[in-house]
Design a protein around this nucleic acid. Structure first.
Length: 480
RNA sequence: GGCGCUAUCGUCUAACGGUUAGGACGGAGCCCUCUCAAGGCUUAAAUACGAGUUCGAUUCUCGUUAGCGCUACCA
C-alpha cells in the first residue's frame, strides 16, 4: 500500500513550490490508490508561527485536494527521542559538547573547506560522555558518519536515477539540538519510518540530505522508502522560490485572492517540472490523476515568471481563462459573486447568473468581474468622457441622433436578443448610418465605456428601465 | 572552497541514435466581427561550447562553461 506525505514546516506561508510538492504527492497517491498524509514538521520552535500554520491550511484547503491522515511532529517528540537514543546506544552517534558558536552558523565562513565534525568530540569515551551529560553539560547529538573506510552511499532516486556520494564528504550532522529538540533530519526520518511512508516525493534541495537520511534509516534498522526528488521551481532571477526573498507573489494565497480557480492553479503548477508528454495542457483533475507518473518528471528546474507589475505567469493566467471558459454558469456565478462583493459592487447571485455567460470568455481572473461587469450592478454609472459617445467617423450630432432614436426604439422594442437586434438594425437603416455607428453610442451610454459584452445581450440583462435612464443621462451629457 | 544536480525557442515542454527539431504561452501579422473578448490562420524564435563513439548525435561518453542546490544546534 502506497503511503506518501507532504511535510511543510510552519515557518512561512504556503508557497507555489510547496503547493506543487503537495500536488505531486496527492496525484501520486490517488494514481496508485494510496494514502496521502499531511504532516506538519514543526520542530523549529524558534521560527514556527501560527500565521504560517494558518496560511498552510488555508492554502491546502483552497487547492481542494483532500488528504487522508494528518499529524503534527510536535506531538511525536517522544518517538524522535527514543529513536535518537537508540542510535546513540548502538554507538552510531556521539555527544558533541562544543558550545554553539554564532560564527559556525554562518555558511559564508565555510570557504576554507567543508566542515565535517568538531575535532576530538567523536572520540570522547562513553564513560566521559555519559558523565558530562549526567552533570548537565549541554551537547548536540551527532551522527557518527563512517570515515576513512571509503564507503559510498547511493540513493536510487526514482527521478534522478542512482546518485552517489562518498560518506567522507558528509558532515557529522545533528540529530538532537543542545536544547534536546530533535532536528529536522531526526524527526523526519523517525516519522517517515513510523508512519510507514513508502515514497518520499520532495524538492530536489533535499537530494543531498537524503544520504544522511539513509544513514539514519540504516542505524534504526528500517528498510528504506523510495525517494523521488522534484526539480526546483525557480524565480525569474534564477534562484529557488523563497518566501523571504520573493515575498507574497509566491504565496498560494495571492493566487487565490486574485481569482484563480483552484484547479487551474493545480493544472499550472503540475506542468512545471512534469509533462504528460502528449502536448496536453488543459487537463481536468481526473485526467491528471490518470496521467500522472514519475516518468514525466524532469531533472531540470522550472521557472515561474512574475514581475513587479504582473505577479502571475502568463501561462497560469491563460490556463485560468481556459478553465473559466469550461466552468458551468451556475458554478461560475457562485465563484464570481464574492469577488464582485469584495470590490464593493451590490451584486446578487440572481443577477450574476445572467451576467456570467456574458463575461465568461472576457475574464482571465475571477477578480476581473469588477472591472468588466461593474455596470451591470451599479445603479449609477461611474463618470465617463462624453466624447466616447461619438461613433467612428461621426460627430456629436450623430451621437445625439442615435441616442434619441434609441430612446424611441427601446421604449417599445421587445427586450430579447432577437427583438433588440432587428429593432436597432432597422433604426440604423432608417437614419442611414452603419450598424456599428448605431451601436457604439448606445453601448457607451449603457455601459459607460466602449469595451463591453455584445450589445443586445447586455441591454437585455440591463433591462428597459435602466437602459432608457442611462441613455437619457448620456443625452444630457452631450448637450452640456 | 567541497560535494551533488542540471543544460532544446524569451518561458513551459516534445522528439526508440535517423524528424523540414513538434506543441503551448507570450510576441508580430492576417481573417472573423456591433466594441472588447473568444475563435481561426500565418509568422519570428531553440538543441550552451569543444572533443570522442557512430554510417549517422538534441539523444551516449568525456571535458569546458554556466546555473542551481546542499555544505546550520533551518527545514
Amino acid at each position: 500500500m502506497t503511503r506518501v506525505r507532504f511535510a511543510p514546516s510552519p515557518t512561512g506561508y504556503l508557497h507555489i513550490g510547496g503547493a506543487r510538492t503537495f500536488i505531486f504527492n496527492w496525484l501520486f497517491a490517488r494514481r496508485s490508490g494510496g494514502t496521502m498524509i499531511l504532516r506538519i514538521d514543526d520542530t523549529d520552535v524558534e521560527r514556527n508561527t501560527q500565521a504560517s500554520l494558518d496560511s498552510i491550511f488555508d492554502g491546502l484547503r483552497w487547492l481542494d485536494l483532500p488528504w487522508d491522515e494528518e499529524y503534527r511532529q510536535s506531538d511525536r517528540v517522544g518517538l524522535h527521542h527514543r529513536m535518537a537514543e537508540e542510535i546513540l546506544a548502538k554507538g552510531l552517534a556521539y555527544r558533541d559538547f562544543t558550545p554553539a558558536s554564532p560564527a559556525q552558523e554562518e555558511p559564508s565562513n565555510a570557504t576554507a573547506g567543508p566542515w565535517l565534525f568538531n575535532a576530538g568530540m567523536r572520540d570522547v569515551s562513553k564513560e566521559e560522555s555519559d558523565r558530562r551529560a549526567a552533570a548537565g553539560e549541554a551537547f548536540v547529538l551527532r551522527y557518527k558518519v563512517p570515515r576513512g573506510v571509503g564507503r559510498d552511499l547511493v540513493v536510487d532516486d526514482l527521478v534522478y536515477g542512482p546518485v552517489t556520494k562518498a560518506a567522507d564528504d558528509i558532515e557529522d550532522f545533528a540529530l538532537l539540538r543542545s536544547t534536546g529538540v530533535p532536528t529536522y533530519h531526526m524527526a523526519s526520518c523517525a516519522d517517515d519510518a513510523d508512519l510507514k511512508i513508502t515514497h518520499i516525493l520532495r524538492g530536489q534541495e533535499h537530494l543531498a540530505n537524503t544520504f544522511k537520511h539513509i544513514l539514519i534509516f540504516e542505524a534504526l534498522g528500517f528498510s528504506l522508502p523510495k525517494f523521488a526528488h522534484l526539480p526546483l521551481l525557480i524565480a525569474p532571477d534564477g534562484s529557488k522560490l523563497s518566501k523571504r526573498k520573493h515575498g507574497p507573489v509566491v504565496s498560494v494565497t495571492t493566487y487565490a485572492q486574485a481569482g484563480f480557480l483552484p484547479h487551474a492553479f493545480v493544472n499550472f503548477v503540475s506542468l512545471r517540472g512534469w509533462s504528460p508528454k502528449d502536448d496536453r495542457e488543459v487537463m481536468s483533475r481526473q485526467e491528471m490523476i490518470e496521467t500522472f507518473s514519475l516518468e514525466g518528471i524532469h531533472h531540470s528546474n522550472a521557472m515561474v515568471n512574475f514581475t513587479e507589475d504582473d505577479p502571475f505567469d502568463p501561462k497560469a493566467v491563460w490556463l485560468n481563462a481556459e478553465h473559466i471558459k469550461q466552468t458551468p454558469i451556475e458554478e461560475l456565478a457562485e465563484r464570481l459573486l464574492p469577488f464582485a462583493s469584495a470590490a464593493g459592487l451590490p451584486a446578487d447571485l440572481c443577477r450574476m447568473r445572467r451576467v456570467a455567460p456574458l463575461i465568461r470568455e472576457r475574464i482571465k481572473l475571477l477578480r476581473d468581474v469588477a472591472r468588466v461587469a461593474d455596470f451591470f450592478f451599479l445603479e449609477e454609472l461611474a463618470p465617463y468622457d462624453p466624447a466616447e459617445l461619438i461613433p467612428q467617423k461621426g460627430d456629436a450630432a450623430m451621437a445625439k441622433l442615435v441616442l434619441e432614436r434609441a430612446q424611441e426604439i427601446l421604449s417599445v422594442a421587445e427586450f430579447t436578443h432577437a427583438g433588440l437586434d432587428s429593432a436597432l438594425r432597422a433604426g440604423a437603416a432608417e437614419v442611414k448610418i452603419k450598424a456599428g455607428q448605431m451601436f457604439q453610442p448606445i453601448r457607451v451610454a449603457a455601459c459607460g465605456r466602449k469595451e463591453a459584452p455584445p450589445l443586445f445581450e447586455t441591454l437585455e440583462v440591463l433591462g428597459r428601465e435602466t437602459c432608457l435612464k442611462r441613455i437619457g443621462r448620456a443625452l444630457q451629457m452631450l448637450s452640456a
